[in-house]
Amino acid sequence: MIKSIFYKEWIKSRWVLLVIAGVFTSVLAYSFMNISNNFRVSGVNEYWELIVQKGISSMGYIKYLPLLSGMLLAIAQFVPEITNKRLKLTLHLPMAESKMILFMLGFGIICLSMLFSVTYLTTAIGMNLYFCKEIACWNLSEIYPWLCGGIASYLLSVWICLEPVWKQRVLMGFPGLCAIALFYFDEMPGAYAPFIGYLIAFVVLSLAFVFHSLVRFKDGEQ
């Protein structure tokens, strides 16, 4: 059954996933080409100095990509479900409803996690090629709030997609955006280090929001 749910989610979202993967690859490649170019044009010393002294980000181009990926994947997976209330067919399948939704979310989270892990690893390898270990780690610490923000934006977008009442969706959008903004306040590497744990806790908590919408859908709120 799990295989079948994953199959359905894959059919719905494969093109979006392909586009997201393509954009990530292109932006990562551009980021490294840009570092290379800065080394040539400004000189290695000057560029290192900018990073160390002024905290200039080398990977800023990917900042909002996880956020957009999460939103797009949520739309690709859940808008077809809510269109014509197809979710009724999904929930009618012989499986506990909460389990069904968890597997659907699981597919999205696994896809995003894989994509983000590859991004993180590629960035780590690339950074270690261009910079010393300390600067590489420093730059990497800048990325993980953005990646966590991607998962949070996915879950909050699902929360909004599954909400059956349009007016309520608009109202949910505001706290959703505020919550997501928490992950993107500061570009300074290491700025999030003291409270990354709270951000991760928020991502886990976002799962509960999805079930809030599911209960409202089941009650036939209009």
Binding site: K8, I11, P80, N84, K85, R86, K88, L89
Partner: peptide, 13 residues
């Protein structure tokens, strides 16, 4: 077995 109004199915398949 459930048939929804308008013969709604998972039309992406």
């Amino acid at each position: 077995g459930l048939l929804l109004e308008g013969h709604i199915q998972h039309s992406y398949f």
